[in-house]
C-alpha cells in the first residue's frame, strides 16, 4: 500500500500540471514521456516494495 503523500489541493495541482505536460509534449511523444515520468518517480521511492505496489495498481487500472 502506498502512502497518500499529497494533500487534496496538491493532488489537484499535480493533476493539472501532468495534464498540461501531456498537452505540451504531444500525442506522439506521450508514451516516452509517461515512461520517463514513471521511472523518475520510481527512482524517488523508498524501495522496490513500493515500486511493485505502484506497478500493480497501474496494471489493474489499465485492465479496466
Amino acid at each position: 500500500m502506498m502512502s497518500l503523500g499529497l494533500s487534496d489541493s496538491d493532488l489537484e495541482q499535480a493533476f493539472d500540471r501532468l495534464a498540461q505536460a501531456l498537452d505540451a509534449v504531444g500525442e506522439d511523444k506521450e508514451r516516452s514521456f509517461l515512461a520517463a515520468l514513471a521511472l523518475t518517480l520510481a527512482g524517488r521511492m523508498a524501495g522496490l516494495t513500493e515500486v511493485d505496489a505502484a506497478i500493480a495498481m497501474a496494471l489493474r487500472a489499465a485492465e479496466r
Binding site: 502506498m2 489537484e12 495534464a19 505540451a24 495498481m57 497501474a58 489493474r60 487500472a61 479496466r64
Partner: peptide, 23 residues
C-alpha cells in the same frame, strides 16, 4: 487530450484506490 488522459487514469485508479478519489 492531456486532461482526458489524466482523467481516465484518475478514474481507473479510483475503482480500488482512494488516492485519486478527491479529484
Amino acid at each position: 487530450r492531456g486532461y482526458a488522459v489524466m482523467r481516465e487514469a484518475a478514474l481507473r485508479l479510483a475503482v480500488d484506490q482512494a488516492l485519486t478519489r478527491p479529484l
